[in-house]
Simulated scan of single mutants.
Amino acid sequence: MFSYLARDVEPGLTVFDTCLGLTVLDVVGPQHSRARRLVEDLFRRTMESLDGYAAREVLLHLLFAARKARTSPNKLTSIAKAILSLETHH
Rank of each mutant, 00 (worst) to 15 (best):
Ser3Trp: 14
Tyr4Pro: 15
Leu5Asp: 07
Ala6Glu: 09
Ala6Ser: 13
Arg7Tyr: 10
Asp8Asn: 15
Glu10Gly: 05
Leu13His: 13
Thr14Pro: 04
Thr14Asn: 01
Thr14Lys: 00
Val15His: 03
Cys19Pro: 13
Leu20Cys: 11
Leu20Arg: 08
Gly21Val: 09
Val24Thr: 02
Val24Pro: 04
Val24Cys: 03
Leu25Tyr: 08
Val28Trp: 09
Gly29Arg: 00
Pro30Ile: 06
Pro30Asp: 08
Gln31Lys: 00
His32Tyr: 04
Arg34Gln: 11
Arg34Met: 02
Ala35Phe: 02
Leu38Tyr: 06
Val39Thr: 13
Leu42Glu: 06
Leu42Phe: 06
Phe43Thr: 10
Arg44Pro: 02
Arg45Leu: 14
Thr46Ile: 02
Glu48Arg: 14
Glu48His: 12
Glu48Asp: 14
Leu50Asn: 15
Asp51Ala: 05
Gly52Ser: 12
Tyr53Ser: 11
Ala55Asp: 07
Arg56Ser: 11
Glu57Asp: 07
Leu60Gly: 10
Leu60Thr: 08
His61Cys: 03
Phe64Gln: 03
Ala66Trp: 07
Arg67Cys: 13
Lys68His: 09
Ala69Gln: 15
Thr71Ser: 02
Ser72Val: 14
Ile79Met: 04
Ile79Leu: 07
Ala82Gln: 14
Ser85Phe: 00
Ser85Asp: 08
Leu86His: 02
Thr88Leu: 10
Thr88Asp: 12
